[in-house]
Nucleic acid binder design. Structure first.
Lengths: 331, 331
DNA sequence: TTGTATGCGTTATCAC
DNA sequence: GTGATAACGCATACAA
């Protein structure tokens, strides 16, 4: 069965398509009786507005694209849910694209969304994205850009980020308060804003504690579990007794490394991660982690799109203190 | 800047829109020189095909919708990735919708996809979906339906599922081999095909071991962590010394319950979960789990869509044996 | 090999 | 209040 169109309804009711269109759009110029008749007929005939045709004619797309590195990271999954809750409410359909951290996939996603003439793009760029050029190229006046979590500040449009600086500052200060003396960090990549900001917060905490900036304490690179294991091993060999990790998976790897090195957590070695992944609370020992409130990040990103705002929105982080960083006597 | 259209290119080259359309579509009737000129001009002018207009005119959408309960479950996240890999390769754009297990959201998602005239719908229905009626109503001849994981066998279209029966059979048999005597199960909801099939496999394993069917060993309900904790407690009080759980989160809850009851895992109490969530390998003790190969499920679902197949595809499960079910002396 | 004419389903701009 | 007409951008049957 082909879909019912407004023309079908028009024929049935002896009206014209224009009237049907107006009636279904709730245009006040239409007689109330007519509108009711149209709505009744539409329901009976199983009419569903053709969003494709509607969007083509009106030039207004009711679709928003979301581009993330991967949907199965707790952070991005929840950010998407937060954005969806706002966007669906406002009548938008959401297209989700994963880049798997590849800039090539990101370019394809941008192109796909552009071809589909979406009303807006919510993006958190891939690690491979060294700069903003490919995103700038994909921009046009029709679709609004909102960046979240990982943002390029040189691009137009709203940016919704965590207060990474203060979050990392708090995490590092917490480790200092717990009595750890040589605190390293698994820092991530410096082309990614959130990691850069966390590193700054980490350094500030150490500096406020009277410690001078020591680059040898910084382990750059991916925040995957395996990288965390390798870097964690190095940090331990270098004499670190604690780590602030910009990600939870790398923190998990560091925990493994510490165990392999015969360290007792948290007595000999303290760790705080970032993102508050589900597994952090069920690890042994449970991992302290900086909660990034991803659902709220997504919500704010969607709201920024709807408002057409151009601001930088900062969302607070919350440190979840668990056993991995709570040294005996300091609990 | 408004987007470049084929008319713009036509004017610039002194040709007609039809020729441009054909040239860009790779129509062999177009002179090779013309095609190259068109491609060059299109690139220079930053042309991007308007997928909306194209889809309206041709009646063929290059968009596929995927409906899942939630994207942040490892199973669904990976299933989506698997489907995407196939669909993107074939030139399709993917729209992802979450139902959060609510039938109301599922109806909305179906409507959204229908309004967007997608070429196909890949769906794993919500727990609230008692039957297939709302999905059947949303069906039409234009879009192909493929169900995966949780399927209604009374609907047309392909179904891609795990071999749940044999998987659960294997998991339960494994517990029997490890010497557990009274094996209960956290069974899920019986309106959901995968849980129903797992329960059947569980019973078959017990029956093959000479044990009669005992409904008191079956704990129905959600497979959330909290439910698992409650049901696990009941199972322990009822004298069970092992559980096969149709989900990992409920298995996690059961582990908590066992610990709270002072049970030693795996000596006093054995557990096997399902889905092989990331956290299973880092739990203490590591949780044995039935791996469902979600990426392959997603791939097969996408392939079934592309092929227009109508078959039932079964994907093998693999039991990941970990400490939670390996009693001393049986390792 | 290219051009002409038409229409996908809807909405916007006139007119009445 | 409603109708007639055109147009969104593209693809395709039919001509040439």
């Amino acid at each position: 069965m082909a879909k019912t169109t407004i023309t079908d309804i028009a024929k049935k009711l002896g009206l014209t398509p224009s009237t049907i269109s107006r009636a279904l759009a709730g245009n006040p110029r239409i007689k109330i009786g007519t509108r009711e008749a149209v709505e009744k007929a539409a329901a009976e005939m199983g009419y569903e507005r053709n969003a494709v045709a509607s969007s083509l004619r009106s030039g207004k797309a009711m679709t928003v694209g979301i581009i993330v590195p991967r949907i199965n990271r707790m952070f991005f999954g929840n950010a998407i849910s937060g954005a969806e809750s706002v966007l669906n409410e406002a009548g938008y359909t959401v297209i989700i694209c994963q880049t798997h951290e590849k800039v090539e996939n990101e370019k394809n996603a941008l192109k796909t969304l552009s071809m589909n003439r979406v009303a807006g793009i919510l993006i958190s760029h891939s690690i491979e994205s060294a700069d903003s050029s490919h995103i700038r190229e994909a921009l046009d006046s029709r679709s609004k850009l909102v960046q979240f979590d990982r943002v390029f500040y040189d691009l137009p449009g709203a940016k919704v980020v965590n207060d990474n600086f203060h979050g990392a500052y708090e995490a590092t200060s917490h480790l200092l308060r717990m009595g750890y003396k040589k605190i390293g960090t698994l820092a991530g990549y410096m082309n990614v804003s959130c990691y850069k900001e966390r590193l700054d917060g980490y350094f500030k905490a150490l500096s406020d504690a009277g410690m001078s900036r020591d680059e040898s304490l910084v382990y750059y690179g991916s925040i995957l579990q395996e990288t965390g294991r390798v870097s964690g091993k190095k940090a331990i060999e270098a004499g670190c007794d604690a780590l602030y990790s910009a990600g939870d998976f790398s923190a998990l790897g560091a925990v493994e490394a510490a165990c392999e090195a015969g360290k007792n957590i948290p007595e000999d070695f303290g760790i705080v991660g970032t993102a508050n992944e589900d597994f952090t609370s069920i690890m042994n020992p449970p991992l302290s982690s900086l909660d990034l409130n991803p659902y709220e990040i997504g919500r704010q990103a969607a709201l920024a799109f709807l408002d057409g705002s151009d601001e930088v929105v900062k969302v607070k982080t919350e440190l979840r203190e668990r056993l991995s960083s709570k040294r005996n006597g300091n609990r």
